[in-house]
Structures are given as structure tokens and as C-alpha cells.
Design a binder for these strands. Structure first.
Lengths: 105, 105
DNA sequence: ATAATATATCGTATATTTACGATAAGCGAT
DNA sequence: ATCGCTTATCGTAAATATACGATATATTAT
């Protein structure tokens, strides 16, 4: 974003757009699905399941953590990730709310 | 996306990620709301309501059109845009389905 | 024909994203 | 103390995204 006229947009739209951004890569949706199935997962397990390098997967995890969709807990030498259920639900609500404003929905 | 290992991801996840990308800018969410309220709108009206230049707004419209969330119809010298209701509903369903797979939702 | 209007596209600058390998930092075991 | 393992971060390259002004194109009106 070169210039920041962006400040004039509605705040909740900015938040929703930001979460949409976090969901805008198939690897990250994949990661959410994995964490949902396994309840929790260390980085290495995610890396084994995603066809991307360790460092790239780590970046995707970081992005999901940035928007709070997942939580990471350090357990000795590893990090255990899991869904942040509260945020997942909040996100679901936010999308539901957006679509409910559309006449056709 | 420098390299294209992306081909190994689930196809519907790739589609959903792509739509999420289209929703990942507040201006574009704003445009969807505007088109919903007014049923249809020419480019110029959208430009007047969005704090961005004409060319930038045109790009955002193009991105929304790329994923089929909106339709554009040329009407003489103008272009009239409206929501693609079928796609809006499909998108709603896709998100609903995604979130319904999460245990917490 | 020409002028005015509307809008998409071009050219361009900057920022961000995505990807990777390499490195650093932390922990546990030896 | 050192080694091995795990993972985050650094450095970097390439691709995309975002923004703008300028321009091209098409249509309507004069």
C-alpha cells in the first residue's frame, strides 16, 4: 500500500479484509484444516503435511498467528500450534454478518 | 508465487483462497456493500464513494470481476456494475462450509 | 467532424507476499 | 560443554499488489 488513504475505510471492513488476507493462501487454509483435525500439531508435523519448505511453512504459521486464528505454545524445543477457537468463531460470525447484509443471501 | 508447488493443494481450497484474496482489501468489501445497496452503479459513482483515484477503483472493480463476484455491463459510454448474486451466494456457502468443518463452529 | 464524457488500460513507483536456503537460538540428552 | 533436534528469523530473489497520473478508446452530444 504505497499511500495510506486506507485510513478512511470502515474499521470492521479493514479487520475483515485483514482476516480475508490471512485466508488468501491455500497453504494457510490447509493448515487450519490440519490443526482442526489434530487438535494440536507441532511445526514439524505441519511441515510434513504441506508441500513447502520448513521456513515457508513457518511464515504461514506466523501469518495465521498474526490475525489470531491460531495459537502457538512453546513446548521445550518445539512449538505446538492449535486453532484459536474463539477467533475462528468470531471470524465465522464476521463473514456470516457480511453475507447477511447482501440482499441475495 | 515464485514457484508453483501450489498445484498440490486441494482445488476447492485454492478457489476459496482466491476469493478470500479478492475480499482482502477494504475498498473491495466497500464496493460490494455499495453495489448491494444501489443494486447497480456506474464506475463513476463508485469512484465518488471510495477515497481512491479513478484508475485504482477501476482496478479493484476488475479484481472483483475476475473472481466473478460482480458483473459489469457496458451501457453506452459507461459501465454499470452489479453484484453477481449467484456467485455471492456460492461464496457465502463456501465460507459456511469451511467454518462448519471446524469442530468449534 | 469535433468536443465532452466515461472508463479501461498503460506506465511506473513502491510495498508486500511468497518462496527458499542458511543461520541463529533454544532445549534436551549425552 | 557439546551434540542433535526443532523452529524462528535473516537474507534474498522473484512475483504480486496497490496506488497514481497519463493516455487510449468508445460513446454521446453539439
Amino acid at each position: 500500500m504505497p499511500l495510506a488513504k486506507t485510513d478512511t475505510f470502515d474499521n470492521s471492513d479493514k479487520q475483515l479484509a485483514d482476516i480475508a488476507k490471512a485466508l488468501s493462501h491455500p497453504a494457510r487454509i490447509n493448515i487450519l484444516r490440519i490443526l482442526n483435525e489434530r487438535n494440536s500439531c507441532i511445526t514439524g508435523e505441519v511441515v510434513d503435511l504441506i508441500p513447502l519448505s520448513q521456513s515457508t511453512v513457518s511464515q504461514h504459521l506466523k501469518e495465521l498467528k498474526r490475525v489470531n486464528l491460531i495459537k502457538g505454545e512453546i513446548e521445550g524445543p518445539r512449538t505446538s500450534y492449535c486453532l484459536n477457537e474463539a477467533m475462528v468463531e468470531k471470524t465465522k460470525s464476521a463473514f456470516t454478518k457480511l453475507f447477511s447484509t447482501f440482499k441475495c443471501c
